[in-house]
Structures are given as structure tokens and as C-alpha cells.
């Protein structure tokens, strides 16, 4: 067993367990903390895929900025604890879980029995493509207009969030 496989097993186990716990915990704060753990494990998985820039951005933007916003709102609103997963409308919830399992089986079938996915082997240059240099080069040449559009989107979202959340005065 080489290090790559050991790291993959550890991080994917953390990701699976934390995503299950995130969906099943009653307390919203526990859910948010397990989601942060899941994002950390994902960041480790990105490192095993040699995507260094994305791994760092995942920790800074997702686990840092976005989840702090979520925790702030949860602690501000103090929502009452949810009911347990199957306490209310158990029939409807079993139906929802059945739909989820069905979609998972479909996806797994496509992934495992597709002739194109099975023949893909890791590209030899995958260590170079995850660096900030290669991503920055593409971002500021080929994807310059989407980049500017993303900047405008963030500005619009910031203004929208302030307008929506501010107190209304008559």
C-alpha cells in the first residue's frame, strides 16, 4: 500500500461519515460543524489529486468564509432543534431516502459499467496543471470575461445581501 491510497482511504472515510452525520444530526450547529469537517476532508482529497490551488481555496473560501457566515446566521436565529430524521412523516422520508438510493444506484451503474470511464488513466502531467501558475495563466487569458463577470456577480450579491438583511424603516 502506498501513501496515496492510505491518504485517499482516510480522507474519503472522513468525508463519508461527516456527510452522513451532517444530514442526520438534529442540532443545526452540529450539522454546520460536520459540514466544515467534510470540506476539510475534501481539501485533502484535492491534494491527492494534485490540485493544490483548489485545495487551499477550498479551506479559505468554503471552510473559512462561507461556513463562518452559516454559523453566524445559525447562532443569530437560534432555530429550535429539528425533529429526528424519521420522527415526522416517516413514510414520506423513507420515500425520499428510497429516491436517493435509487439515484445513487443509477450513478454507480453508469460509473462502474461505462466503457469510457473505466479506460481513463491518470494523465502524466497532472502535477503541473494544479499549480497557481497554470490556473492563473488560463484564468487571465482564456477565461478573462467570465472572471470579470464573477467579480460583478460578487458585487451584486454583496449589495443584494445588505439590502435584503437590513432593517426596514418606515
Amino acid at each position: 500500500m502506498n501513501l496515496e491510497i492510505i491518504l485517499f482511504v482516510i480522507f474519503s472515510a472522513i468525508a463519508v461519515v461527516s456527510s452522513v452525520l451532517m444530514v442526520t444530526r438534529r442540532n443545526a450547529i452540529m450539522s454546520a460543524l460536520f459540514l466544515i469537517l467534510n470540506f476539510g476532508a475534501l481539501s485533502g482529497l484535492y491534494l491527492t489529486l494534485h490540485a493544490q490551488f483548489i485545495a487551499v481555496v477550498q479551506v479559505i473560501v468554503y471552510a473559512g468564509a462561507i461556513m463562518v457566515l452559516f454559523l453566524f446566521v445559525i447562532m443569530l436565529l437560534r432555530p429550535a432543534d429539528d425533529k429526528g430524521l424519521l420522527e415526522e412523516h416517516p413514510k414520506m422520508k423513507w420515500f425520499a431516502i428510497g429516491i436517493g438510493v435509487f439515484i445513487f444506484l443509477q450513478l454507480a451503474f453508469v460509473i462502474l459499467f461505462s466503457s469510457t470511464v473505466g479506460s481513463i488513466v491518470q494523465a502524466p502531467n497532472n502535477i503541473e496543471i494544479g499549480t497557481i501558475q497554470s490556473i492563473g495563466k488560463e484564468l487571465y487569458t482564456k477565461y478573462l470575461i467570465p472572471f470579470e463577470a464573477a467579480a460583478f456577480l460578487l458585487l451584486a450579491a454583496a449589495i443584494g445581501a445588505i439590502v435584503l438583511a437590513k432593517k426596514k424603516f418606515n
Binding site: 456527510s19 451532517m22 446566521v73 430524521l85 422520508k93 425520499a96 429516491i99 436517493g100 439515484i103
Partner: peptide
């Protein structure tokens, strides 16, 4: 795929908007 399905189940079963 598994993580996506956990997200789907969370959207379909939880009551808390957050």
C-alpha cells in the same frame, strides 16, 4: 456520487431552511 446523494436526502428530509 455518495456525497451528492446525501445532499439530496438532506434537501428532501430536513425541515430547517438553514
Amino acid at each position: 456520487a455518495f456525497m451528492f446523494i446525501m445532499g439530496v436526502i438532506g434537501v428532501l428530509t430536513r425541515k430547517n431552511a438553514i
